[in-house]
Computed example of a mutant assay.
Amino acid sequence: MYSSNNPNDKSPIPPPQYGRQAATGYPVQQGVEGSWSSGLCDCGEDVPNCCITFWCPCITFGQIAEIVDKGTTSCGASGALYGLIAWMTGCPCIYSCFYRSKLRKQYMLEEGTCNDCCTHFWCEGCALCQEYRELKSRGFDMSLGWQGNVDRQNQGVYMGSTAPVMQPGMNR
């Protein structure tokens, strides 16, 4: 099934949306720039993640990078590279700001008053926590990684939905 009636257009139709966001990464409203699900400084919404990010931001960054890259990079590799850059330069934002930009483009989120690099430079921990909360609010279980979320979706447990998905076919 393809997105247009043009026989040369082979782009797939996005899967149906259940809840806010499916694990495939398709935004709910395509083409419309939207707001973040939480503010930059709303760390009170997820205190455990804020603590992890404060003490070891490479863990949070690795989880974000794996989801944003749709499983093409691993949490461990991304987190280790983040830690290495932080150790060598003292400025891991030169790496992490690019993932904020990718996340914004994937979900058509507004940039805000400060660009992504400045946001990460001045508020690295807050930016990582906001990105983590955004993915979590879109239905991702950050502890599962990309493949775990895809497997969960393929088993009929769609992001943001507690109702089972009915499969087409004959039922008795």
Rank of each mutant, 00 (worst) to 15 (best):
F61L: 01
P57W: 00
T24V: 10
Y26F: 13
E45W: 11
G31I: 02
G39L: 14
S35H: 12
I59W: 00
S35M: 14
I59D: 00
K70T: 15
C51R: 10
P57H: 02
C41D: 12
C41K: 12
I67Q: 02
C43G: 13
I52M: 06
E33D: 05
K70N: 15
A65F: 05
G39R: 13
D42F: 09
T53R: 01
A23E: 07
Q29I: 01
E33G: 02
K70R: 13
P48E: 12
Q30G: 01
C51K: 12
D42E: 15
T53K: 00
Q29V: 04
I64A: 10
E66S: 08
A65Q: 07
T24I: 12
D42W: 07
E45H: 11
Y26M: 15
K70G: 12
K70F: 09
T60K: 01
V47W: 00
C56N: 10
F61N: 04
G44W: 14
G34L: 04
G31R: 01
V68N: 00
G39N: 08
V47H: 02
C58V: 02
V32L: 07
I67T: 10
V47R: 09
S38K: 14
E66R: 05
E33C: 09
Q30A: 03
E45M: 13
I67F: 13
G71S: 10
I59T: 07
A23S: 15
S37K: 05
D69K: 06
G71Q: 08
C58K: 06
I52C: 10
A22Q: 07
C43D: 13
S38V: 10
I59Y: 00
Q30W: 03
